[in-house]
Design a binder for these strands. Structure first.
Lengths: 218, 218, 218, 218
DNA sequence: TATGAATGAGTCTTCATTCAT
DNA sequence: TATGAATGAAGACTCATTCAT
């Protein structure tokens, strides 16, 4: 008999994983105050004491889930490769990628919103958060440099601020889709969101383009 | 003994107002699950039964607070006047105004985030929400039209989508300031946010500008 | 309809009393760790939230019960009157009274034991504890003075130390009755305890008596 | 790899000892209800299943610890030797010894208090408890006999009752030191307790002394 | 002999909600 | 209109105990 595939016994690491996944799901679905440890236990198919044993208390569990959200996002961001693209295409690709990310991993947006509601009480205590989006920023910098070098892009754009703009354009329509849907009575669905990403790309590119040189006075 | 000057006057309307203000503060500070009816009562300086008497239950109170948030925002949006401005200036002004709005009324952002966490369960049931941001959209349409008419702006831009882009660029940096601050180690404060608004204006304007007509072939 | 005699509604003071009595009973019967808030609620015929509402938490409830134990003891000690007695009789009476006290109010002994197990964590924070046994000490002092004045008692005896000795002789047989019963296979009952009090009186009196003056050398 | 030098040797007896010592410490520090099996395991440096394996359950562990307390006390009492002393000195020595005992082995007092709180539920089931303090009683008897024989002591004193009196005078000041300290604001420390023992000896001796023979009528 | 992993059954505490006046 | 008093139902967290290896 090989390793038993039973859910429960003797698999500390696996148990912790299940709890973490369940916690991420629970906190992102219900927010901190609305999350229930009981539900996490049920979802993870463990008894409550396991949660307290491995994570401490609800707060620590939340912090672990938040960190996990960032970690998973970082994993994802490692996969973008834009070096070989034309700068404008690279920017558009980044926008597409970011939007895709937010659509595919809705719990990330929920966790960020929840954490900001809590005024960042937990992020502050997570180590290494700073370097989490370093990949993204690095790519952004590289694209900008190349764009400037070829004369296609203006210079003087801060990559972090540019990244935040791109993130804003992708985050908000996903994050606020439920209120937007009602307020604007628009059918906010995946295709609509993807068009937003295209338009965000367009906007970023136009924002970056070097101003046309005025024709020489004759 | 004549009219007592207690904090609990006979005027039902005033009592309801105090409750509503307290509820808005409470729900936006703690989210739905974290909000406490006791705290609302204490803040409003009323007894808890009053809350149930006037609003029903926690859920109804939340809905009332959410609606109130929208109403207050609508009040604010009535005050923008861009008709007399040049289209580009008008766009920039709208961005500034929107950002200012979000900074001044942080509970609005919190309520929107909370409501979206709840997947829009409550907005759906609020009447007249649709027309709430009609002022904004109307202005946006008008500006676009004028811009297109003068040849300054491209045509074919949807005012709602443009509005959402502008909102995105202003909302996200405020809404996510606590996580951004930690992740990017940037001092996110009022001046920084105002610069974001300027840059948002710049971006929108560049996005809208008509493409330069290529010089006629000789 | 006069005041309703219902157990529950609208009688804050009465409710608090019932809770306090129940708490005293519960803590003295089971010790701190063995006490159950549920049982206190049941005994007091109130819902648990009442307990937390009026007393705070288990710890505060315990402290209140401990203080109550001391208060009730003080009440009792007010009733001894030994001024008109011969000093020796007064001492014997005090011993009898003290023993009776311990027999009649067994929860007092239990609370003291419990509190000492906790190393006095709670007494320290009770105000006015110091003056609680002042009546007893005052009486003791007065008896001693009168005894010395009449030449019947030795001088130089500290009233507090004498009180502690008396208390020791009465407390221990009651407090430790269950172990004593088994270890010495003696039927420790009320009569036996009362004889202990008599013997304690005898012992104290003999301890206090002035040494016989040696006959003058012829 | 040869015999590991871990803290968990193969020797079952040693393991049991460590558990027993830890249990004695735990129960006497926290009482029955406050004692934690986890803490016993940690203190004994064994896994919890070991405790259940060797002792059964918490109750059985408690009983074992209580018995151990008595056993250790009996060990101690074997060491007093008063045969060669003058009866009065012997009594004083016994008081000193008893007090020293209580000061040196505070867990004994705690266990007795805990057990009496439980109304002696466990002592009753311990075999041989009866003979545990036999040494003490035997000594007491012998001293009394010798005192009576020499005419120094009164006759008719029951050794068990005398022992209980002595124990009372020593037990109470140690047992109740924390409440006494607060109630009487006296610095109850080792020297103070030792003076209590001296005074207890004095009291016992005066209690035992034969009454002076009235001078013969001339 | 020994233990890491796991849990059922509580235990304290809180919360939304209602009753009686 | 207004509230002090009260509670059922659940929430977070713990504890004695057992299983599988």
């Amino acid at each position: 008999m090989t390793k038993t595939e039973t859910a429960h016994p003797r698999h500390a690491a696996a148990t912790q994983r299940r709890i973490l996944d369940a916690a991420l799901s629970e906190f992102s679905t219900h927010g901190y105050g609305g999350a229930r440890v009981d539900r996490v236990a049920a979802m993870a198919e463990v008894s409550k004491p396991m949660i307290y044993n491995y994570f401490g208390d609800k707060d620590a569990l939340y912090k672990a889930a938040l960190k996990e959200a960032y970690v998973q996002i970082r994993e994802g961001e490692r996969q973008i490769a834009t070096e070989h693209m034309e700068p404008e295409d690279a920017i558009r690709e980044l926008a597409r990628f970011t939007m895709e990310h937010f659509i595919q991993k809705p719990w990330f947006i929920s966790m960020l919103n929840t954490e900001n509601l809590r005024r960042g009480a937990a992020v502050r205590e997570i180590e290494d958060v700073a370097e989490i989006q370093s990949t993204m920023i690095a790519q952004m910098s590289h694209i900008l440099e190349r764009g400037v070098a070829t004369g296609r892009f203006r210079s003087g754009i801060d990559p972090v601020e540019l990244y935040i703009m791109m993130a804003s354009l992708c985050f908000f329509p996903v994050s606020n889709q439920h209120t937007l849907r009602v307020v604007f009575q628009t059918p906010i669905d995946a295709p609509w969101l993807k068009r937003r990403a295209e338009e965000a790309g367009e906007m970023l590119v136009r924002y970056l383009r070097a101003d046309p040189v005025p024709p020489p006075n004759p």
